[in-house]
Design a protein around this nucleic acid. Structure first.
Lengths: 270, 270
DNA sequence: CAAATAGTGTCTCTAAGACAATATCAC
DNA sequence: GTGATATTGTCTTAGAGACACTATTTG
């Protein structure tokens, strides 16, 4: 009878064919867009980081940042590493979206991807700036339901607009999965991944699970409300938002200044 | 300049080292345990399917069913296939739990696992019966929080009891991740996977997302209530449960019979 | 009839949404 | 003062939990 040591010594893992494994990152940020009216609070837009591919396949198409899992790291570490390489920022939090493994999703061969949402605060991006050598751009995100069970994902950056159309597959466990009808110029199945990520994000924003991670440590309740509204694509009355969020935050002694209207107290996550 | 075709022809995917990928299955069933009192409704217990390993590593330890991802299938298909191979039952639904990729989790080498919960109705198992050649057994599940942030996972089958202790890592996005303190005789990191699966299950049972899948097509509201209570380890008043669930079910014309008490109307999932 | 579950009605309390009213700043 | 946001309070309504009560079956 074989001992465990002998077994492992003779075990040949290469008997089975193996896939390559990547982590793909849906790096999201909420950008404020200042208006010309000094009194108005800045509006917000959800942005996603895309990279223009310089290589085949999908050369010159836009793709999510990501990279191969290497030995000795977890897939979460890989996602963090890739995010950091692309943005120079260590994200506040990363959230798993799912495993994408449909055969043929990558023309290079058998490649499956673990997808993550990386949430990045605008503050940190402007501090660190990103490596401009790469053709990486933040795209404004619009994601809305059309007639039937179709969705439109529109990504805009300057004069570049990517219009992807997706069909909703099923909604279970609070997550929705999609099928790409038209990629709109996005590489691989990345439209599908982004749609799944946004759907997961909306689901978790309901319980304030992630909205804090888009903001710096101290924030006003209006900022927080705007983050939630931007993600969920809804609007709520400030009075009611305050009450709902009150259990999740603690006051500080500090206030905003010079906003052209009544100063707001800064809060911290509880 | 290379064309895409040329690029793909010369692309060599084996340049990078690749992990083996498995799907591990937390197959769950709710078993009714009839009592001696003919009047009493049967109680329920949550059970998980474990397999006694006949091979190194972890020979004679209990492990989750699972197997290697093969080319041409998605990881969900792999999970379905493995469940069916082990139980003879095609599960009503499978729910992703997460990717487990900690280096060293498998002594055979670099193996990462996508874990799924497969929900199986007792009815289907008793109909099809499972292949008894394999040493596969359904273990009763107890999972409870102890002092501090420690959890006890106790799996029982006849006179075999596996006691695993885990520490809660973090609770985010409605899911909790765990670290194994004591495996209690479970192979690999499977105690961690089972704990994560149960935590995910409890989270989704809140919105009645999965409780139907444990039952046959037609069921009484008491059965449904017992399923939720078994999963969540709570108890609610029948009157209130009925009201909460009323929007999710539709009546049939049928009733139970011969239960030693008032017959119950059968319902269907809406 | 007794034991057990099935099913209904009602009270209270909490939380969410709508909305009115007041507070405070920069200009 | 004006225009904007910040902040508080109150009314109404929907839903959850507690509990009392009725209905229906089998042995």
């Amino acid at each position: 009878m074989q001992s465990e040591k002998e077994f492992l010594a003779s075990y040949r893992i290469d008997e089975y064919e193996r896939p390559s494994v990547t982590a793909d990152i849906v790096a999201l940020m909420i950008r404020s867009t200042r208006s010309d009216n000094y009194r108005l609070n800045s509006a917000s837009k959800l942005s996603v980081l895309l990279i223009k591919r310089g290589e085949h396949p999908f050369r010159d198409h836009w793709a999510l940042p990501g990279g191969f899992l290497v030995p000795g790291e977890t897939i979460e570490q890989c996602a963090l590493r890739e995010t950091q390489e692309e943005t120079n920022v260590r994200p506040v939090s990363i959230m798993p979206v799912g495993v994408f493994s449909r055969p043929g999703r990558d023309p290079r061969g058998w490649i499956i991807s673990g997808a993550f949402v990386s949430i990045i605060s605008e503050e940190s991006v402007s501090q660190r700036g990103q490596d401009d050598a790469k053709d990486a751009r933040w795209f404004d995100v619009e994601f809305e339901r059309l007639e039937g069970s179709e969705y439109l994902l529109r990504l805009t950056c300057g004069d570049v607009t990517l219009n992807a159309r997706l069909a909703e597959n099923e909604e279970r466990f609070g997550r929705t999965s999609f099928t790409v009808k038209e990629s709109g110029g996005l590489a691989f199945d990345h439209a599908e991944i982004i749609a799944a990520a946004l759907s997961a994000l909306r689901n978790d924003a309901k319980n304030f699970d992630i909205i804090f991670d888009f903001l710096p440590e101290k924030f006003t309740l209006s900022q927080l409300q705007r983050v939630q509204e931007t993600i969920m694509n809804i609007s709520v009355l400030p009075a009611n938002f305050r009450r709902k969020i009150s259990g999740f935050v603690t006051e500080t002694d500090e206030y905003t200044q010079g906003e052209g209207h009544r100063p707001a107290k800064l809060y911290r996550r509880k």
